[in-house]
Design a protein around this nucleic acid. Structure first.
Length: 208
DNA sequence: CCGAGGATTATCT
DNA sequence: GATAATCCTCGGA
């Protein structure tokens, strides 16, 4: 019965960098209202952690938008960027510590037809290779903000997959940060992806 | 192949 | 009023 059990709150309560690293290879699961099941392997993530991380929404104070980052680990933090794109994060670390892991890219495993329909007209490798592309493909919006992802009840959770060994993991600077983000935050290697995976958004800034 | 620029709006200063 | 954890299209090489 309980296929695809959600990752535990204890897992998400770890430091955002550990959560982001270990989410590689895990499987994002989405169950639509009509029962359609979509599964996609996580192939790229980023970490945002603490009030001193000047690239994070948690850098300043508590605001209505970043409030979920201060909440309980394992909940979704979904927000709109550039006025049109939804980005999915999972809250990490204990409550009161603003931290989250951004899901940047996934590899479709199941529910391919549904994904293709949402991303029609585009080549397959662009279906879910980007943080806003995957939310569009899986139908994730602001309606999912703050939902608990340690239960299947909300139709959105992550289950364990085949672990990815360090030898297959690459790291680099986070993508898309504003020009005014100071070092070391601008260049810190808080982005993780699976080497040679075609669904990664921008594999080029390679680094072991 | 690549770089430039537009889309579009909630949120913060 | 400016910005933004992005994506897409278009023009040029």
């Amino acid at each position: 019965m309980n296929a695809y059990p959600p990752l535990t709150r204890e897992f998400y309560a770890q430091h955002a960098t550990r959560v982001a690293r270990d989410l590689l290879g895990a499987v994002l699961v989405r169950r639509l209202a009509d029962g359609t099941l979509i599964r996609a392997r996580i192939v790229e993530t980023e970490a945002y952690s603490g009030t001193d991380d000047l690239a994070s929404h948690g850098r300043a104070k508590r605001t209505p938008r970043n409030l979920p980052m201060y909440g309980e680990a394992g909940h979704a933090y979904v927000y709109l960027t550039y006025g049109m794109h939804w980005l999915l994060n999972v809250v990490a670390e204990p409550a009161e510590t603003p931290a989250a892991a951004l899901i940047r890219a996934v590899e479709p495993l199941e529910g391919i037809e549904h994904i293709a329909a949402q991303r029609s007209g585009r080549p397959q490798r662009e279906w879910t290779s980007g943080p806003a592309r995957l939310t569009a493909a899986l139908g994730i919006t602001g309606a999912h903000n703050k939902l608990d992802m340690t239960t299947q009840d909300n139709g959105l959770w992550i289950t364990a997959g085949t672990p990815v060994p360090d030898s297959a993991v690459r790291t680099g600077a986070r993508i898309g940060l504003g020009k005014r983000v100071p070092e070391p935050w601008f260049s810190i290697a808080w982005r993780w992806w699976i080497a040679d995976n075609p669904h990664v958004s921008k594999p080029q800034f390679s680094k072991a």
